[in-house]
Deep mutational scan, measured.
Amino acid sequence: MSAKKSPEELKGIFEKYAAKEGDPNQLSKEELKLLLQTEFPSLLKGPSTLDELFEELDKNGDGEVSFEEFQVLVKKISQ
């Protein structure tokens, strides 16, 4: 996936994966893993990378990643 996506496209991608289980407005760690493996495969170099990335993105510590938290990752990789 190209990092150059419109905000609407990014929101659609986020919602597609977030709706798989639990809260449709939040990504669980498994949903984030699936999204990254599919859309940004070069970001995941191993299991520790996912854990570190999830911890970094989950700013409020609720165990899930909101769209706002996800946007931090998108901004970081599009620079």
Rank of each mutant, 00 (worst) to 15 (best):
M1N: 02
M1A: 00
S2F: 15
S2H: 05
S2N: 15
S2P: 00
S2A: 04
S2L: 10
A3R: 02
A3V: 15
K4V: 03
K5M: 10
K5I: 14
K5T: 11
S6K: 02
S6E: 03
S6I: 04
S6R: 02
P7E: 13
P7W: 05
E8I: 09
E9I: 04
L10W: 06
L10M: 14
L10E: 02
K11G: 03
K11I: 11
K11H: 03
K11W: 01
G12T: 15
I13S: 01
I13P: 01
I13W: 02
F14Y: 13
F14C: 00
E15S: 11
K16V: 02
K16L: 09
Y17E: 01
Y17L: 01
A18H: 02
A19G: 14
K20E: 04
K20V: 06
K20T: 10
K20D: 07
E21K: 12
E21L: 03
E21H: 10
D23L: 09
D23Q: 08
D23A: 10
D23H: 06
P24G: 09
P24F: 02
P24T: 13
P24Q: 12
Q26N: 08
Q26E: 12
S28E: 07
S28Q: 11
K29R: 13
K29A: 13
K29L: 11
E30Y: 08
E30F: 11
E30D: 15
E31S: 11
E31H: 10
E31W: 03
E31D: 14
L32A: 13
K33T: 14
K33D: 13
K33R: 11
L34N: 14
L34D: 15
L34R: 14
L35N: 00
L35E: 00
L36I: 10
L36T: 02
L36V: 10
L36N: 00
L36E: 00
L36K: 00
Q37I: 05
T38E: 10
T38L: 06
E39C: 01
E39V: 01
F40E: 03
P41C: 03
P41Y: 08
P41H: 15
S42F: 07
S42K: 14
L43I: 10
L43T: 06
L44P: 15
L44G: 08
L44K: 11
K45F: 06
K45L: 10
K45W: 10
G46F: 11
G46Y: 12
G46S: 10
G46M: 14
P47V: 15
P47G: 09
S48C: 03
S48R: 13
S48Q: 15
T49H: 14
T49Q: 14
T49G: 08
T49A: 12
L50F: 09
L50E: 12
L50Q: 09
D51N: 13
D51Q: 05
D51T: 08
E52K: 13
E52M: 09
E52V: 09
E52R: 08
L53P: 13
L53I: 14
F54K: 08
F54E: 09
F54N: 14
E55Q: 13
E55V: 10
L57C: 13
L57Y: 13
L57I: 15
D58F: 14
K59R: 11
K59H: 12
N60P: 11
N60K: 04
N60D: 14
N60S: 14
G61M: 09
D62P: 09
D62Y: 02
D62A: 10
G63S: 07
E64G: 14
E64R: 10
V65W: 10
V65Q: 03
V65F: 11
V65N: 02
S66D: 05
S66Q: 05
F67H: 04
F67W: 08
E68L: 05
E68S: 05
E68V: 12
E68R: 08
E68N: 08
E69I: 07
E69C: 06
E69V: 10
F70N: 00
F70R: 00
F70L: 03
Q71E: 15
V72W: 04
L73P: 00
L73Q: 01
V74Q: 15
V74L: 10
V74A: 12
K75M: 05
K76T: 03
K76W: 01
I77D: 03
I77T: 03
S78M: 07
S78I: 15
Q79K: 14
Q79S: 14
Q79A: 12
